[in-house]
Amino acid sequence: MQVTINIDNPEPAFAQLTAQIKQGVLGGSLNPGDALPSIRQLAQDLSLNPKTVAKAYRMLERDQVIESKGYRGTFIHQNAMAGSTHDLAAWVHERLTKTIAVLRDAGATDSEIRIAFGNAMNQQISKGT
């Protein structure tokens, strides 16, 4: 299977990569146990920063689409099909949209929402969570 990264696409490269790997799993091009290229190889082939590919792999690993087996490499996860249907980013976006609507209904301005969101995020980061 091939992946294609278009730098003119407004979607970030790591998101294009994760989306295409998930599509590959759903479309049957990638099956559980299939080996994937190393981060370095894929970054070289796509002329991307290895950190970008590493980020995509981290996201896919979190969603149980791929699994890293140390020095043996990275493989498609046994639960990849279920993991590929679950789009955490879309879920986060949906939840935030609903929350913003609730806050606006309560009379909060966009500026207040942004500041509160920033503060909450910073608080979480400083707690190390």
Partner: peptide
């Protein structure tokens, strides 16, 4: 020349 074009790669380890 290739730098500005869409890039593709095979998802197979070499």
């Amino acid at each position: 020349e290739y730098a500005g074009r869409p890039k593709s790669a095979e998802l197979q380890p070499r």
